[in-house]
C-alpha cells in the first residue's frame, strides 16, 4: 500500500478550514492543520499545530516537524485569512498590519516552506491559495482586505512561474461569501448587494470551494497553474 499523501491546510480551527480538513481526511489524505488556537475537535488522520501563520519561526518549526514525521508535503491549502470591514478613513494602521500579516505574509511563508519540502525529492506538489471575490468586485468597505487578496493573486501568478521548474503548480480559488464567522459582521443589505453582482446570486457553499480545489490538486491538473478561479460567475 502506498503512503498517504500529506496535505497542509491553514486556518483549520473552524469554518472552511475545518471543512477542508474533514473533506480531505475522508479522501485519504494525512492532513496537517494549523491555527492560532487549538481546535475543540479531533479527527483520525488529522494533526494540529498551534501557530500564527505570520510567525516565521513557528511556521518553520511546523514544517520541520512535518518533514520529520512525514518526509513530504503534497498539497498546501492557504485557507487562513482575516477580514476587516471599515471605511478607509476610519481604519487604523494596526488593522492593515494584521490583515496583511495573516493574508499576505502567512500565504508567502507557507508557500515558501511548502515549496522547499515539495521540491526536495523531485515529487513536486500543488499549492492552492485563497483569493476571494472581494478583489475583482472592488468592494467598498473592504479596501484593506481586497488589497491583501490582490497581493495573494499576484503572488499566486508569479509563484506559478517560479515554482513550475520544480513540478509545483500554484493556483487560487476565489470564493464568494460563504456562511462563516468572516461574514457575520457584514450588514445584510451589504451582503445582498454583493451577492446580486454575481452571475449566480447566492451564498457559496463549502462544497463549491472544495470542488475547485479537488480540480486543482488532481493528478490530471499538472498543466494548470497560475490561475485564479472565481466562483459564482464573478
Amino acid at each position: 500500500m502506498s503512503e498517504p499523501r500529506v496535505m497542509v491546510v491553514t486556518g483549520t480551527r473552524k469554518g472552511i478550514g475545518r471543512y477542508l480538513a474533514e473533506h480531505y481526511v475522508a479522501q485519504g489524505f494525512r492532513v496537517v492543520g494549523c491555527s492560532r488556537a487549538t481546535p475543540d475537535w479531533t479527527l483520525a488522520g488529522y494533526e494540529h499545530f498551534a501557530a500564527d501563520v505570520s510567525d516565521e519561526p513557528a511556521v518553520k518549526e511546523m514544517f520541520r516537524q512535518v518533514r520529520r514525521r512525514h518526509g513530504r508535503v503534497d498539497v498546501l491549502l492557504n485557507n487562513a485569512g482575516i477580514a476587516s470591514m471599515n471605511h478607509v478613513m476610519l481604519t487604523p494602521l494596526s488593522t492593515v498590519r494584521d490583515v496583511f500579516a495573516t493574508n499576505v505574509l502567512g500565504t508567502f511563508l507557507f508557500c515558501r516552506e511548502a515549496a522547499r519540502l515539495m521540491s526536495a525529492d523531485g515529487r513536486g506538489g500543488r499549492i492552492v491559495n485563497f483569493a476571494p471575490v472581494a478583489t475583482p468586485l472592488r468592494l467598498e468597505g473592504e479596501a484593506v482586505y481586497a488589497a491583501s487578496k490582490a497581493a495573494v493573486e499576484s503572488l499566486t501568478r508569479v509563484l506559478a512561474r517560479e515554482l513550475a521548474p520544480f513540478g509545483i503548480t500554484v493556483n487560487a480559488v476565489g470564493p464568494t461569501p460563504v456562511e462563516t464567522d468572516l461574514i457575520r459582521s457584514v450588514p445584510k443589505e451589504k451582503m445582498d448587494a454583493l451577492i446580486a453582482r454575481q452571475a449566480i446570486p447566492r451564498l457559496g457553499e463549502m462544497r463549491d470551494i472544495s470542488n475547485v480545489i479537488d480540480f486543482f490538486i488532481r493528478e490530471e491538473s499538472r498543466f494548470v497553474t497560475g490561475q485564479v478561479l472565481y466562483l459564482g460567475g464573478v
Binding site: 518553520k60 520541520r64 521540491s119 526536495a120
Partner: peptide, 14 residues
C-alpha cells in the same frame, strides 16, 4: 535547498 536540508540533518536545527 540541498545544503539547508543537509545542515538540518547534520546539526539538528532548521
Amino acid at each position: 535547498l540541498t545544503v539547508e536540508r543537509r545542515l538540518e540533518d547534520d546539526f539538528g536545527t532548521a
